[in-house]
Design a protein around this nucleic acid. Structure first.
Lengths: 165, 165
DNA sequence: AGCAATAATTGTTGTCGTCAATAGTTGTTG
DNA sequence: CAACAACTATTGACGACAACAATTATTGCT
């Protein structure tokens, strides 16, 4: 087992005279703080999502766009860029691919001839519906040891943390 | 070359004419299921971590290695690879960098002359201690709207989900 | 002794993010 | 209203990096 206490004392790291306790924040080991935990779990989640998306020819970013489009009916590419945090140039390629697959299409904006409105097609909706089940499989895989109630609270908490500009 | 695999889904996604209900699981919008939520939040967390690590010349993966080393005293590179989910070749460069900064060092294994044991130096421990405070700042930024109690439960849940081989 | 398996490393390749530049369009203002 | 600044989508270029394959050195098996 990690007897880190010993090694911490080996050298003279006496700048901090406070007792070296295993409960010290910087000693809490791998899963120290929540931010880091989120990063690790998010990574795993992304990997799982990716592997199951792979057989559809899409990647995670495509899925993110689709999900966003499902939420708001039609959106400017600029909007996609800012809300999803991807570079505008990245959006171009993503929407290209989605269009090629028939999952989304660009429409001219009535107001502004520079803008294009990206809208989810019926095919795209079908894809989302079909993959939703697989997505839940991934979630199950990810949240193995948690019972339904715990999952619900986790979901709610994550939602609160995520739902803000 | 876009490795657009010929979308194995083409025939699937039955366009079932069931009413499009906003409560349908696949319609719940952007933050549909927990796995996806984790992915998005993990991304944000990673970005924040990265920006504050940037001024130290390290990246997120270095930090992950350091954190792992802090937990187990000395570990084979192979172990780092499997536990952290990074490719063995990636570990090489990461440990190189950490060694160059004096945060870790390779030691020969007494048992096996192929293996090297990577061990955290005292300097590395100091770095972790110093950056821990910044890490908590990131966490605060990330979990803004949650009160301490909620953060605690979230942390516990994430820990349960993360702590398994 | 021979041969598969393993640890670390190097090399290669494709992808992603970022930055600059362009074309078309709108808004502003002198 | 004419000139200029700001904005949208797009393209192109470049560096960083991650995933995969190949190499070298060592160990274990039989």
């Amino acid at each position: 087992m990690a007897r880190t206490r010993e090694t911490a004392i080996t050298g003279q790291h006496t700048e901090n005279p406070t007792s070296i306790d295993a409960d010290e924040p910087w000693m809490r080991g791998l899963h120290a703080d929540t931010g880091y935990l989120l990063y690790r779990l998010g990574l795993r989640s992304g990997q799982l999502f990716n592997t199951f998306l792979q057989e559809s020819g899409l990647r995670l970013r495509h899925y993110a766009v689709l999900r966003f489009l499902a939420g708001s009916e039609g959106s400017l590419q600029r909007e996609l860029s800012t809300r999803l945090g991807y570079d505008p140039s990245a959006i171009v390629g993503l929407v290209d691919d989605l269009e090629k697959l028939g999952f989304a299409e660009r429409r001219p904006s009535p107001d502004d001839r520079r803008s294009r409105i990206v809208v989810l097609t019926e095919t795209g909706r079908g894809f989302l519906r079909d993959t939703d089940e697989a997505g839940q499989r991934v979630t199950n895989e990810l949240l193995g040891p948690l019972d339904p109630a715990e999952r619900a609270t986790l979901h709610a908490l994550l939602l609160r943390a995520a739902d803000r500009p």
